[in-house]
Structures are given as C-alpha cells and as structure tokens.
Simulated assay, not measured.
Amino acid sequence: MDLVAAAVADPVRRSILTLLRSGPVPAGEIAAHFPISRPAISRHLRVLRESGLVRDTLTGRKRLYELDPAPIAPLVEWLTELGRPDGWEHRFDALETEVYRTRRFKREERSA
C-alpha cells in the first residue's frame, strides 16, 4: 500500500493514470501529453510499474502501458475507513440530539 500511495502522490503520475483509464497507450503518446522531458515521463512510468498500478507490454517497437487498478483497492479501503467516524462520534451525536430534545421538551412543559 505504501508504494501505491507514494505513486499516486505525484500529480503527473495521477494524470498518467487518468490517461490510461481509457485503455493501453504507447509511451510516446503519454509523453506527448506533458510539458516535461521523455526521460522524466519514463521515470514516472517506472514508479507506476513498480507500484503495480501500470503494466507494460512490448508490441513491435512500441511499449504500451495499461492501468491495473487492483493494487489501489487496499489504499481506497483504508482511506474509506479513515473517513468514517468511529463509534464514539456516533454516540456523541446521539447524546447531543437527546440533550436538545430534552431541553425543548422542558421548555414546552414550562410554557404550557
């Protein structure tokens, strides 16, 4: 999960992953989408390969890259869990609701 998190931390690599969602793309075409050097794109692709997010195949003289979203699942699961409130937060919310309900009920009793 750490390799995947490090790979998606860079905005260029995230853009490459987005580009690869539509299917396999040759390395040259990937490089053409960015205002950085081909060696820099090559390094980004290597990081994505090493994290398992991208697979490459050699077709003739072209190297095609394609997205493999499977390694991102543990990261997504962890982020989802991180975003969920723990059990105590729900309990405190319920307690707050009861306190307001009780106060409102007491005010209504006094005014009646």
Rank of each mutant, 00 (worst) to 15 (best):
24 P>V: 09
91 R>F: 06
23 G>M: 05
37 S>I: 05
74 P>M: 09
62 K>E: 12
76 V>F: 11
29 E>I: 04
31 A>T: 05
41 I>Q: 01
99 V>P: 03
18 T>V: 10
98 E>F: 08
49 R>S: 12
96 E>F: 10
65 Y>V: 03
65 Y>D: 00
92 F>Y: 03
35 P>S: 03
58 L>R: 09
71 P>G: 12
107 R>I: 10
54 V>Q: 06
20 L>M: 03
41 I>Y: 02
94 A>T: 07
7 A>N: 08
83 G>R: 13
98 E>A: 02
12 V>F: 06
33 H>T: 12
55 R>V: 08
53 L>M: 14
59 T>Y: 02
18 T>S: 11
36 I>A: 12
23 G>C: 07
90 H>V: 08
66 E>N: 08
53 L>G: 14
51 S>P: 07
32 A>S: 10
2 D>T: 03
38 R>N: 03
70 A>R: 13
34 F>Y: 15
89 E>T: 06
36 I>S: 13
75 L>W: 00
17 L>P: 03
26 P>E: 10
47 V>P: 04
99 V>N: 02
8 V>A: 01
53 L>P: 14
102 T>C: 06
102 T>Q: 00
68 D>R: 12
9 A>M: 12
85 P>D: 09
107 R>L: 15
19 L>D: 12
7 A>D: 09
69 P>M: 04
22 S>Y: 13
8 V>H: 01
41 I>E: 01
86 D>H: 05
83 G>I: 04
85 P>N: 02
10 D>I: 00
93 D>L: 15
86 D>W: 14
42 S>P: 02
53 L>W: 14
3 L>W: 01
58 L>I: 08
67 L>T: 06
104 R>Y: 12
50 E>F: 05
42 S>I: 11
34 F>A: 10
109 E>H: 13
68 D>I: 15
49 R>H: 07
42 S>Q: 02
88 W>R: 14
92 F>D: 11
54 V>I: 04
27 A>S: 01
94 A>F: 00
43 R>K: 15
22 S>L: 13
97 T>K: 01
56 D>W: 14
29 E>Y: 06
107 R>V: 03
79 L>A: 02
48 L>W: 10
43 R>T: 07
55 R>P: 00
48 L>I: 10
21 R>S: 04
78 W>N: 04
7 A>P: 08
77 E>R: 08
76 V>G: 00
64 L>N: 04
99 V>E: 09
13 R>H: 08
80 T>I: 15
41 I>M: 07
24 P>F: 02
96 E>D: 14
61 R>M: 13
9 A>H: 09
28 G>T: 02
27 A>F: 05
47 V>W: 14
45 L>T: 01
49 R>N: 15
36 I>P: 11
94 A>R: 07
18 T>D: 02
101 R>Q: 00
58 L>P: 12
20 L>R: 06
110 R>T: 04
83 G>M: 05
106 K>I: 14
16 I>M: 13
13 R>K: 00
